[in-house]
Design a protein around this nucleic acid. Structure first.
Lengths: 245, 245
DNA sequence: CCTAGTATGCTGGTCTGACCAGTAGACTGA
DNA sequence: TCAGTCTACTGGTCAGACCAGCATACTAGG
């Protein structure tokens, strides 16, 4: 009959109102909030309360305060940094395993290649191809790795799907964070690079032929081959269902 | 030669230290932080600064403060609520079209059914089946809709993958928000419910038979049939590549 | 003896008022 | 015209105060 209630703090109300204004289109990205002292009269609360609200919004990546700026706090464009942060946090506290992340990345990239194969434009294909060229001619591992990232980014962008782009970037970043110590001690870095190049060449070929299912399968297989070894034996079973076509 | 620097606020340092203590295993979930007044002496800052730091941690879902609790702020277990929040924020900024969201939902649910078919346990299958039963016997649309949500949630949970669970929930919520006015004016609600029931029955059958690719294809087809009509003609092409098997 | 009720000493939430350093734009001088 | 200074704001931080909420210790009545 009745539903539970919880006390609503003043700063939460302030957050809600500002959030609503940002989502509602008043306060577009690039615009500025009134100064803290203005806000405290508008909301009828003290500056501490206003500041706590602004801290929350700032930690969510919605605004940015600069000391001394007479224009007030800046409203930021939506960006995936907050998403990245919370995902990293979740992954760090081991409530999300590397296996889960790899599983997700396989289904994400698998679908990305499927879509990219059918939807890509000539310039997008050229971009992907250029990234592969850079990888081929890269001398040190850092340049190679950067080009690798560019390759995957270009494929994700070719899908034209924001969610795929963002999630791919974030998940890839978190996965790399989790295994970076393994990579640092890799002795066979040269063999690794060779294998990567082979995979990427094959998948680019499939993209060019607009063979979506082939590209997708190659991508998932490549991910499995590259990362399964970092997983406990038992966890690899959760990836194999994604290898079938 | 030099890298850019940015001023580090006092409250940020406080956040860092507390975060490190939580990630480092001191301060496990369920334990309590010292009181704000204790923290202000330990960190050598004022209470405002401590409170701003605590607000940041709270908005990240790491701690929870209760007025009057003599034990101090509670350290929470990692949960996907923060992930959910930041993802919703990103999806809501209207920089994402309904077409993109549907595309993402199709690939997400498609993979979810694929995994669920192969990994589900008996109790999870029972849960899914129970949700379908509730849908069948539902009298009003609200109860039907709730059971529908429960059905999809149960399938997502059967994948055991946090990312899939969170993303599915978020994307489904945002999609429903975007088309809720269409649904409110739906005249053929009865036909809609009948079609949903048929789809769900079929897909449950495929899950029970552990036929992943069939379940996946049925799910994607069902999504397309249900939602493509809300899309501009031109945008439907972006969904069709996901219908192939 | 046990229990209901109260008293206490903490907690977090909010407010006030103050000071400092940083910023941008107006102002001033050469 | 332009370099430099001035000014009026900004956000960051601090100190001290008050209130309501919670758990515990205590106390009075059975």
């Amino acid at each position: 009959m009745f539903s539970p209630v919880s006390p609503v703090r003043a700063y939460e109300r302030v957050v809600e109102q500002i959030e609503a204004a940002v989502f509602g289109g008043q306060l577009p990205p690039g615009s500025h909030l009134p100064s803290e002292r203005d806000l405290m009269t508008q909301f009828g609360v003290s500056r501490s309360t206003v500041r706590e609200a602004l801290r929350v919004l700032q930690s969510n990546g919605m605004i940015q305060s600069r000391a001394g700026d007479p224009r007030g706090p800046l409203v930021l464009a939506a960006s995936p940094v907050a998403l990245h942060k919370s995902m990293t946090r979740l992954a760090r506290t081991s409530s999300m395993s590397l296996g889960e992340l790899l599983q997700f990345r396989m289904l994400l990239e698998g679908s990305a290649y499927l879509l990219a194969a059918q939807l890509h434009t000539a310039s997008q294909l050229a971009e992907i191809s250029a990234a592969l060229d850079t990888m081929t001619t890269a001398t040190d591992y850092t340049a190679f790795s950067d080009a690798d990232v560019a390759f995957h980014d270009a494929v994700a962008r070719a899908t034209q799907n924001t969610m795929i782009i963002v999630c791919s970037t974030v998940v890839r970043g978190v996965v790399l964070d989790l295994i970076e110590d393994h990579l640092a001690h890799a002795t066979d870095r040269q063999a690794l690079m060779t294998r990567y190049l082979k995979h990427h060449t094959e998948v680019l070929e499939a993209l060019r032929a607009r063979n979506g299912s082939l590209a997708s399968q190659l991508a998932r297989r490549a991910l499995y081959d590259s990362y399964a070894s970092y997983l406990p034996e038992a966890d690899r079973a959760m990836l194999t269902p994604l290898l079938e076509n």
